[in-house]
Simulated scan of single mutants.
Amino acid sequence: MRFIALVSGGKDSCYAMHLTALDGNELVGLANLKPEQSGETDSYMYQTVGQDAIDLYSEAMEVPLFQRTIKGRPLNQEMEYENCVDGDEVEDLYELLADIKKSVSYEAVSCGAIHSNYQRVRAENVCERLGVKLLSPLWGREQGSLLKEMIDSKIEAILIKVAAMGLDPSKHLGKTIAQMYDELCVLRDKFGINVCGEGGEYETLTLDCPLFKKRIIIDQQEIVQHGHTMDEFAPVAYIQPIKMSLNEKIIKNGNGKAS
């Protein structure tokens, strides 16, 4: 099937896109909902930090990017989304995918949901209205093994936001998921956090994956404290990229030498 990948900049949507393509489906476009301003914006549906890198996704994969600014708010917070609500942020997703259909033919949409029924049922609602299939290859997976699988598949993603007990902005922001894997497992056992961060414990920015022909580089960044005070036990902060670029990927030949 020809599919559109919902991308947020994070590891889950990127890995879902990778698995969907690996299964023989054809990636024909990227769909992204962005906040009106750079930085962190409250949303129940969409990751809003790291949005400045999305344009580079399109260039890195040589795939068209379709974006829409988030206008709505999470008005309908029920677990089911049976009645469409004007002004709800879910309708931004519907309008984006409906607009894409006017110029690109596709039969499916990939989504990076793992255990969030809230997100999945809303994505399913939108896809049903558009007559396309929702593909959620990560759905229901055990998070520890899933994160290890992402790392082994060469997904390079860094922690771009932290918001959980045991995660320290000064120590953990900017570290890769490979560097953080053991520590995240420890925090899971100690505090019960979601290893993949689906509970909002942390968010990521994907810098490289098998579908990228070029690698994203953060050339300049700043650390932003979220809110007016730092929580003593679970401080919230994120990386705001200021300047980014793309670098050619180093490919090793059969002898292990770069070429």
Rank of each mutant, 00 (worst) to 15 (best):
M1I: 07
R2C: 05
I4V: 15
A5D: 13
A5F: 09
K11N: 07
K11D: 12
M17D: 07
A21I: 07
L22Q: 15
L22Y: 04
G24L: 09
V28A: 13
A31P: 03
Q37M: 09
G39H: 07
D42K: 06
M45V: 03
M45L: 13
Q47T: 09
T48L: 05
Q51A: 11
E59H: 13
M61H: 02
V63Y: 04
V63E: 06
L65W: 08
Q67L: 08
R68W: 05
G72A: 07
P74A: 12
L75A: 15
E78W: 00
E78S: 14
V90P: 03
L93S: 04
A98K: 14
D99L: 11
D99K: 12
K101I: 11
K102D: 02
V104N: 06
A108W: 03
A108D: 08
S110K: 11
I114C: 08
H115R: 15
S116A: 13
R120G: 11
R120V: 11
V121Y: 05
E124H: 05
G131W: 00
V132F: 01
P137V: 13
L138D: 12
G140M: 05
R141V: 02
R141T: 03
Q143L: 06
S145K: 15
L146W: 05
L147H: 12
M150G: 06
L159P: 00
V162D: 03
A163P: 00
P169I: 10
P169L: 10
P169E: 14
T176H: 05
A178C: 01
A178L: 04
Y181R: 08
L184D: 05
R188K: 12
F191T: 04
I193W: 05
V195Q: 01
C196S: 06
G200S: 11
E201S: 13
Y202D: 08
Y202A: 10
Y202N: 14
T204H: 12
L205Q: 11
T206N: 04
P210H: 15
K213S: 15
K213W: 13
K214D: 10
I217L: 15
I217F: 14
Q221C: 13
E222Y: 03
V224E: 08
Q225G: 07
G227P: 04
H228V: 15
E232P: 00
F233I: 04
F233G: 00
P235V: 02
Q240G: 07
N247G: 00
K257N: 02
